[in-house]
Amino acid sequence: MTSRHVDSLVPRETASAGQGGTRSGGLRGYDSALPALDLLDPSTPIGAAAAAAVEALAVERRQPFPRPTRRRIISVANQKGGVGKTTTTVNLAAALASHGSRVLVIDLDPQGNASTALGVNHHSGVPSIYEVLVGDRPLDEVIVKSAEASGLFCAPATIDLAGAEIELVSLVARENRLRRAIASMQRDVDYVFIDCPPSLGLLTVNALVAARELLIPIQCEYYALEGLGMLLRNVELVQAHLNQELRLSTILLTMYDSRTRLADQVVHEVKEHFGDRVLSTTIPRNVRLAEAPSYGQSALTYDPTSRGSLSYLAAARELAERGRDSNGAA
């Protein structure tokens, strides 16, 4: 091949250096041959999905969520790990706060994942929920504001909370300590979400005694209902002896994969058993939900138009609508 033939294959500059242009490399010379890519073009699958997401997000933002007439205290619990308790707590709280509600998240898990996802410092030595439960520190003194939304607050958990299960055993009224702390709180909030650890110990019991509502995330997989009976028996014991106001108000199906028959079977069984307590919105498997905490953000901030974000927005609206006519009792 001659040098003339080789030269014909090299993209030419669109402007010379003397005309104020810059020397380019790569495929810049072929840009004019490529059609412009419209990411919102509804004639393409990606464009249609993106356009639908943007429209859904715009609709959600135009319609404010109803606020409860009294404070709703909701424990998010399931002793099975990895079902989306923290993801649910953080994203529901962020969605409600971004639509006008004032929301407090109490991180009751020693791992502190909810604190991480809300961008709240929770290293050892930071004032935390541990001092509230074990040291009688006022809850107001440990609450910090999250950057996620103007009305979103967090009572963080530190690793010190890991020893609280043992320390609480010898304390007077050990099951009621969180309830008393919330009752004496001066901060005005519409919702209190309590993110429980994956166990049925004293921390979870404190959360159940403090709450009026129980929200259980259930994973759309084979072992979803295994062990749920034990949690419900504990709820019945708490209702009978410690907190008559507590009720199972909400079931949220998480990690739904529409490609599998198993997920549909789990959805069918849960709805058949729990009826209208199951939210009609299901949370899909979505990589954005997993990525967001590593950036100290909720999925709604990290990627507002992702399927996970839009699903949690819809679930938060359902939750708000359900509490509107029942004075927060759901």
Rank of each mutant, 00 (worst) to 15 (best):
H268A: 15
E213D: 14
Y312M: 02
R285E: 04
I283K: 01
A224G: 00
V209Y: 15
V238M: 02
E236R: 14
M255F: 15
G275Q: 04
I216L: 08
V209I: 15
Q297N: 05
V270D: 02
T254S: 13
D303Y: 10
I251Q: 08
L300P: 07
T282L: 09
A211E: 07
E291I: 01
P217S: 11
I216K: 04
V209G: 11
P284L: 01
E318L: 05
E236S: 15
A263G: 13
D257A: 09
P293G: 07
L262H: 06
Q239D: 00
L214S: 05
Q219W: 03
G275D: 02
G275S: 04
P304K: 04
N234I: 13
L228R: 13
A320L: 08
S306G: 12
L208F: 09
V238T: 01
Y223L: 15
L208M: 10
A315I: 01
G227T: 06
L228K: 12
T282V: 15
V235P: 07
L279Y: 03
R247L: 10
R212T: 15
H273D: 08
T305W: 00
L289V: 02
N243F: 00
L313T: 08
H268T: 12
V266I: 14
E226N: 13
L225H: 01
L262G: 03
A263I: 09
T305F: 03
L313G: 11
T254D: 10
L313D: 04
L253F: 10
E245M: 06
R277F: 05
I218R: 09
R261S: 14
A240G: 14
G296M: 04
L232W: 07
Y312G: 05
F274H: 06
S280T: 15
I251R: 09
